[in-house]
Amino acid sequence: MKNRTCFALTLALLLGSFLPACFVTAQEPHEIELLVAGTEVTDTFINLRDQEMRLSRADLAFGTLTLCPGSQAGALCTTARMEWLDSVIVDALDQNLKSAGTLTGVTGETLSWMYDLGFSSQLTQTKSFVLDAAEELGGYSCRVEGEYLREGIAIPFEANLIVQQTEETEQGMAVVRKSTSDSFSHLLTTSDQSLTVTFDPRVWFADSNMEEFLEDSTCMPEGPPIVCRGQIEERCDADGMISSTTNCTAQGQVCVKELGCQDKILIPDTSSTYRSLQGALVAGERPTFAFN
């Protein structure tokens, strides 16, 4: 009888060792929904350069997104608190929430974030991965269209931006990272259900200068072959004399510096406006992160 009891006790202990154990852990695996939204911008807005604009398109290839435990995302974010490795096109002019996917990770304090804009740089690759959203945008991180309102004239513009890490920058890191001056802190718990990231495209243009593409000049010796005198295109000969003029406005066009009459300003990647847009996307005013 004693032997049986002993055997049963031993067996119970051994079997017990295989039952699911209950461990007290400070962290738990957790998933939350990632929602993205834009900001409805129906009116014109004025940027820091007192330039008035109106936006008709602001599509952003958003993703990947990583939430980090440390206050500095980047190289110190070896282990993410949560991450989402997909990408989605955010219509930054649409304030309706859109589900982008699921953030997976663990609970705990998160003090920083970092995300890519359709291009994800890897330590092992010299070229970034082009994510689906960027593919859908024609290979761009961001496409914006709008009008620059100048002296009552609406000058359309378009910018197609690529924002990614290069060999000269920080390879292997997400391109947009919370800076130390940004305030972001949240204790992720299992009660968190979603994270909403809201973009306001107006801030992208905070420092853009559309005047860069406009001018009020005339032909002169050793000058460019095409100049804009306001909305009048002047073509210049070798001696700097006007050879022909065209009223762009009359053709429903806009006179763009060095290009003459164009349907719109196509912001080139060599321009300071392009760089300021890139800079605003990477380091400008941040989207808002809200946990629910």
Binding site: L14, V24, T25, A26, P69, G70, T79, G108, E109
Partner: peptide, 23 residues
């Protein structure tokens, strides 16, 4: 640490890697 300035902790947190039962 720099990458984990607030290490998660609650009272009675179980030590990782330790098996409660060994037979």
């Amino acid at each position: 640490t720099a990458d984990e300035p607030f290490p998660p902790f609650i009272e009675g947190s179980t030590l990782p890697y330790v098996p409660p039962l060994v037979a």
